[in-house]
Computed example of a mutant assay.
Amino acid sequence: MQEDRKNIYLLDANIIITAHNLYYPVSKVPEFWDWLEFHAKNGSIAIPREIHEEIKGGNDAEHVRWAKDGARKKLLILDEEFNQDLLERVINEGYAPDLNEVELDRIAMDPVLVAYALADPKNRIVVTNEVSKPSRKRQNRHVPDVCSAVGARCCNVYQMLRDLDFRTNWKSNV
């Protein structure tokens, strides 16, 4: 009998960037960042390597230093081989089968994130700050709509926070 595995939330780079810039700055709400690290350690949160490389910021970007810290980076990175066939499926079914080079540059790493979710669609959930805009076509499609088109699960950061029970006093319950 196969046991059910727990969900793994695959974070888009915009989750880290926006959290720091808008609502949970690293130095102001360290509980959030500790919580992310805790869930990375227990396998509930991961960031594909290609997506991790998209985490950028200014000269004094605390969130970049946090995410790129050697030991923490190792915890955060989803350590597995990438499936090129899944990427092609995401591009063809989620965007368009005939994207040109300019369009492919525009979609950047989003299809990679979705492809990692498709590697285990029952247990992986893409977490993004992008919102559904079904009227968008081709390279302008948003991650939630691409996920929907290919059968990958997707949620926003607030759903992940609810699902994993984030509170600023979360350590008292661990």
Rank of each mutant, 00 (worst) to 15 (best):
E103L: 10
S135I: 08
V131N: 02
P48E: 00
D34Y: 07
R89C: 01
F38V: 05
R136N: 15
V157Y: 03
N42I: 14
P30C: 10
I91N: 04
K73N: 07
V112S: 01
Y23A: 14
R138D: 06
V29Q: 13
G94E: 01
E93M: 03
W35K: 08
L87R: 10
R49N: 08
C147Y: 00
R153N: 14
N21W: 15
P144G: 01
R65E: 12
R72E: 09
I45E: 08
K28A: 14
L161N: 07
M109P: 00
R5F: 09
P25E: 09
F32N: 07
T168E: 14
A13W: 06
H142K: 10
L86I: 10
I45Q: 07
R167A: 08
E80K: 14
H142S: 02
N156D: 15
K68W: 12
I51E: 00
V64E: 10
D4Y: 05
R5A: 13
N173D: 04
Y9V: 09
N59K: 11
M109K: 10
T168W: 12
A119Y: 02
D120E: 09
A152Y: 03
N129R: 13
E3F: 06
H20L: 01
A96D: 10
L75T: 04
N59S: 12
L78M: 13
A108W: 03
D98R: 03
N59Q: 10
P30Q: 13
L75P: 01
I45A: 06
L11F: 13
I17W: 03
E81K: 12
V131P: 00
K171H: 10
Q84V: 12
D60E: 05
E54L: 04
K73W: 02
P48N: 04
N129K: 11
C155W: 03
E88A: 05
Y158H: 12
D110C: 04
